[in-house]
Nucleic acid binder design. Structure first.
Lengths: 249, 249
DNA sequence: GCAACTTTGTGCGTGCCTTCACAAGCGACT
DNA sequence: AGTCGCTTGTGAAGGCACGCACAAAGTTGC
């Protein structure tokens, strides 16, 4: 393909961004974290085979994923970790901090507010909201909980670009509308409802009950199948879409 | 196709289970929850168009999903909600309670232990584990936290079939091995690591940091694209691809 | 400088998932 | 009974993603 002659100009970067498959984006984030760990351990370079094994994906798939963001590997050697991390962060938009607002400071919301995995990775939780008068006003990790009706004002003041909804189901759509009207264009939804949003807003849903039900399905399947559990190879790996390709020796 | 003459015998059910696409299983769980809400509102039947709109999927896809579990619709009318719910629950393995063990009662784990969405849907959290001496012994929702080393014994006693891991990353693999050695065959992993498991064990991963990074990517994309935001069609809808499952992927 | 080895980048076949479009089936109304 | 309108179930086509396999490109050793 046309090689990127020097640096990715903004145009080139934009063109690339648009064309990265959704499935690859999800994996790029996983590669990035693993690369961070490797860097901490002092590694300078890593091969696609090593990184693939560590993240549980096929090496060819990994190389193809990385090829979407440019040619940052050295044939015969591998990938230079520092450069790759920098480029991944640029691609994933992690070169800026993204202020996050969290609505719903109940059971789950409280845990999310205290989760260190966010702030440490460029997503400082900057605003907390709830409707419960007993919760409004308390501090969590140094952030004061505000009333939901303040969402537009506070989000504008603090430049919030990502919203997380951890309210009970019935409240979620209303909260979502408030966030959208405040200019938030990306939402992570933990409430068990399907949010209706304008087309320019991106919603991702994390549904814990559904995750368990999917597992329950597999429990039932294994149960019904008895345990044929053929004497296949011994290990590996994460993730559902295990082809379970035709058995039949 | 060959219609199920009377009831799905276990054989027929087993054959169907094996052939349901993974992506469809995830959606079936969503349909089931929405059907429950509709039933509460007093609805008797629902058409594929209505249910599809409510769950944010394509009507044809919904019908195909439902066709995997049998022909429970009435042409010209729609689906009888009660019968469909019953069949979905059977298919997803929700006709039995599935005891769940939760390992890691820190920030996130504590919230999960108290999350009512599990017990209310057939997944009673039956055992809690941690290594922290300050946590071992305390009660959460009436369950006492045990030491991780008790996992094999307690899981066997209480018939645990699903494990949830909400530990810090470095501890996750060890905990996973313990669960697997205790007979747990399905694991929901919240720790930011890729678990290595035998092939007969099913792992689903929920990775909150990755979810946010995917959103950040879309923030960056929207930003770079300016707001051309073409005059495309007007609406819609949740969900990128999941794969995931979500997270999952 | 050359040969052997290593590892990337990718063209291509394959299979799964999605979506369209339509025939078949069911109820209601006349 | 017959017709009309509505909705399901599915065949078939298109698109996307995965993974193999190999050429290109770099490094190491002599």
């Amino acid at each position: 393909m046309t090689k990127p002659p020097h640096a990715g100009s903004a145009d080139v970067a934009a063109a690339r961004l648009r064309s990265i498959p959704e499935a690859s984006v999800a994996r790029l984030a996983v590669y990035l974290r693993m690369l961070g760990e490797l860097a901490e351990q002092g590694a300078e370079t890593v091969s696609s085979d090593e990184l693939a094994a560590a993240t549980g994906v096929n090496p060819a798939k990994l190389r193809k994923d990385l090829s979407y963001i440019g040619s940052y590997g050295i044939r015969g050697v591998g990938y230079e970790i520092a450069a790759l991390v920098r480029q991944l962060e640029r691609t994933l938009g992690l070169d800026h901090l993204r202020a996050v607002a969290l609505v719903g400071v109940g059971n789950l919301g409280h845990a999310l507010a205290g989760y260190s995995g966010f702030g440490g990775r460029g997503f400082p939780v900057t605003a907390l909201f709830d409707v419960d008068p007993d919760l409004v006003g308390i501090h969590i990790n140094g952030i004061v909980v505000e009333h939901v009706r303040s969402i537009p004002q506070v989000c504008a003041e603090r430049g919030v670009t990502i919203g997380m909804i951890a309210t009970p189901g019935p409240a979620a759509q209303g909260v979502c509308d408030l966030l959208v009207s405040s200019g938030v264009r990306c939402i992570l939804n933990f409430a068990p409802v399907v949010l209706q949003v304008p087309h320019e807003v991106e919603v991702r849903k994390v549904d814990l009950a559904v995750e368990l039900q999917i597992l329950a399905f597999h429990v039932a399947r294994k149960h019904l199948a008895g345990q044929d559990a053929a004497t296949v190879n011994g290990h590996i790996i994460e993730h559902a879409s295990n082809g379970s390709g035709g058995m039949l020796p």
